[in-house]
């Protein structure tokens, strides 16, 4: 399971002391409730129907016995002897006193736990299959992937103020024991592995802030970001479920065994992907045509850059290809002032 290094521990400890000061200032009247509310929510402290509630993250549901003891001790010492484990693998204490909250967070920090990002419009606790690592039907142990996501999303400043909360769950079995479909971003790991570049691209685009969107734009089209008043709008992400229980992403090509019949499945194989998808379909349907050296050189001539990643990450190469295409098609590439 995960272990805090000295940086993790220092950050969590600093956060506890920061919250201790904020709670003190609220109790002394130096902060109003309106000022304090976003601060307490960033530390998992809600005001619920009957009392304050503290939500503590259990990263992908993994607990060691020391942590479990600490959770039980908190329930006895500060609450009413119980806690509520949620479907997203947090534990909630329902009768917390504001004056105790910082002490509880300090007790949690001693066993490498916290309540950070358990509330608000950020990336929440990563959840997983409760039988992860021990399930007979899993294609891979999902916990290392959950841990990567935990490290990446913890304290990530760019995702601290998203327009909506984001809940990520990683499972690697057909059976959805983690109630994954209740979450905002479903993603079966088997599909994620097969389509990893696409998943990575979709996720990174989804989480991009306005500033980095404009920076990307400027890399590919220098000067454009400042010439117009850009407003980000939400567009569709091409993620779909083709049949119940089987998540498919992007465009799927299905070809019969005897290669006499093929079809393309996709929610919206748009102009940006259709030549590539069609080419892949033709390759699968007519492998003999694509086998020889002459076919390869013809393809290279038609598609000088066949690596999508290069076009996404290399602005110079992108512009080179774009200009060549524009000149072949007689398209004016510069936007008039």
């Amino acid at each position: 399971m995960y272990q805090y290094d000295k940086y993790d521990q220092a950050m969590v400890d600093a956060r506890v002391e920061e919250f201790r000061d904020q709670a003190r200032r609220r109790l002394e009247g130096k902060l109003t409730e309106d000022q304090f509310k976003p601060l307490r929510l960033q530390n998992g402290l809600y005001l619920q129907l009957h009392a304050y509630m503290l939500r503590v993250a259990v990263p992908y549901g993994t607990l060691n016995s020391r942590q479990m003891h600490a959770l039980a001790d908190i329930a006895d010492k500060y609450d009413r002897g119980y806690g509520h484990f949620t479907t997203r693998q947090n534990i909630q204490y329902n009768w917390i006193k504001l004056e105790d909250a910082a002490d509880i967070l300090a007790d949690l920090a001693k066993v490498e736990m916290h309540a950070i990002q358990t509330s608000g419009n950020c990336i929440r606790n990563i959840s997983s299959d409760q039988y992860a690592g021990a399930a007979a039907d899993e294609v891979v142990d999902p916990r290392p992937y959950a841990e990567l996501l935990r490290q990446w999303s913890s304290f990530h400043p760019e995702f601290a103020a998203l327009p909506r909360k984001f809940k990520i769950c990683v499972i690697a079995s057909e059976k959805d024991r983690a109630a994954m479909r209740l979450h905002d971003i479903p993603g079966l790991l088997s599909v994620a592995i097969e389509h990893f570049p696409l998943v990575k691209y979709l996720v990174s685009e989804t989480f991009k802030g306005e500033k980095s969107m404009l920076e990307s734009l400027d890399k590919f089209a220098p000067g454009l970001s400042s010439r117009f008043d850009w407003k980000p709008v939400e567009a569709g992400q091409r993620v779909q479920i083709i049949k119940d229980g089987d998540l498919q992403m992007g465009t799927e090509i299905i070809v019969s065994k005897d290669k006499t019949y093929g079809t393309i499945l996709g929610a919206s194989p748009g102009a940006s992907v259709s030549p590539e998808v069609m080419l892949r379909a033709l390759e699968q349907l007519f492998p003999a045509v694509f086998a020889g050296e002459s076919a390869r050189s013809k393809l290279k001539e038609m598609f000088p850059e066949d690596n999508l990643d290069t076009l996404i990450s290399n602005p110079e190469r992108y512009r080179e290809i774009r200009d060549a295409v524009n000149s072949a098609l007689g398209i004016q590439s510069e936007i008039p002032a």
Partner: peptide
């Protein structure tokens, strides 16, 4: 409302 320190309904 709620008590500020304890959160109790009052």
């Amino acid at each position: 409302g709620n008590d500020l320190k304890t959160g109790a309904v009052v």
